[in-house]
Design a protein around this nucleic acid. Structure first.
Lengths: 183, 183
DNA sequence: GTCTATAAGATGATAGAC
DNA sequence: GTCTATCATCTTATAGAC
């Protein structure tokens, strides 16, 4: 992958995660890199192409980091802690919410292909958690608990950034782990 | 309040809650009502004025509905259930997320006055919950649990709408009440 | 790969007629 | 209150030169 393409995606991801998909323009991204908007169109023919590439890269990165964070996790509790930690890193490293959390909120106003990909990110999150939970749990419980975890962490990122208080995330994640796994 | 002004706010709220603040234009709202965009500017001089009016009205409505839903609530559990039910109604009646959840996600890209008002909605939510929880709880617990509740419900709305599956909200809310209040 | 130039349309906003 | 007319600006996107 080209260096410029990478820098464009970095700038786009950062901006979208802070302001939303519709608040980011090719001109703005071009200015960030010191090039012209026509050059951005060389790397991404349409804005939707950029959006799709961002979701793909974000998702791959997320599951890579998740794998690293749970490499030594033996118990379900350790796996869930690693999952929460992966979300926390995404929040802290960029001081902004999850890319798919933002796009999920804007879902109805996005190109359909993007909507589908974002939903795929969430179902993959849920599937990972279902697999991480103790195998003796009823599968209905594993599913509903997985949804609860994703929902809680996504909401906690939003609450933490919009109020400017990262404590809301940390406290919520701590409660969540205890609530789901027991004391 | 004028009828047109009310209809404009209805259209704006519905559209923003589905697509986000930056995806909604005065022209679009005007078309919805069969008037011209210049007429929209008569009712709301700037877009920001419309945004602020929407947050105010949404917040007032929310706390009115919340009061109705918890009018007969005697226990903390019943109050929390009424709180979750108020969120559920907002989701089901419009098939879209909370206005402040959307604006909270887009927070960094909004006029500062809007950002402040949105944060105020969340802190008011949290304050209501802190007051609803059993008085014998340590205040740090009341605060962190209140944040957890708001974060969870906001995230659950986003997850439910973006995946098109309202079950994620219902299951999550059910777990949440049990987790916070005990079995 | 990046540029200039350009198109076609959207957007927030205003002035002034009715 | 609503309209027409208009504005400057922004947006996505393309064609073709370098």
């Amino acid at each position: 992958m080209t260096e410029t393409r990478k820098l464009l995606m970095d700038a786009a991801e950062a901006n979208i995660r802070q302001k939303g998909y519709n608040a980011v323009s090719f001109r703005e991204l071009a200015d960030d890199l010191g090039i012209k908007s026509a050059s951005v169109h060389y790397h991404f023919r349409k804005k939707e192409d950029l959006g799709l590439a961002l979701i793909t890269r974000y998702s791959e990165r997320f599951f890579q980091t998740l794998a690293q964070n749970t490499f030594e996790a033996a118990t379900a509790r350790e796996k869930l802690t690693g999952f929460c930690e992966t979300y926390r890193q995404a929040l802290v490293s960029s001081d902004s919410i999850c890319l798919c959390g933002m796009l999920g909120a804007e879902s109805c106003g996005l190109p359909e292909a993007m909507t589908t990909k974002v939903a795929g990110f969430f179902t993959a999150n849920i599937a990972w958690l279902e697999n991480a939970f103790p195998s003796h749990w009823p599968s209905a419980d594993k599913q509903s608990r997985a949804g609860q975890v994703v929902a809680t962490l996504q909401g906690a990122m939003m609450l933490a950034t919009s109020t400017g208080n990262p404590l809301w995330f940390r406290q919520t994640a701590t409660h969540l782990i205890e609530d789901v796994m027991g004391p």
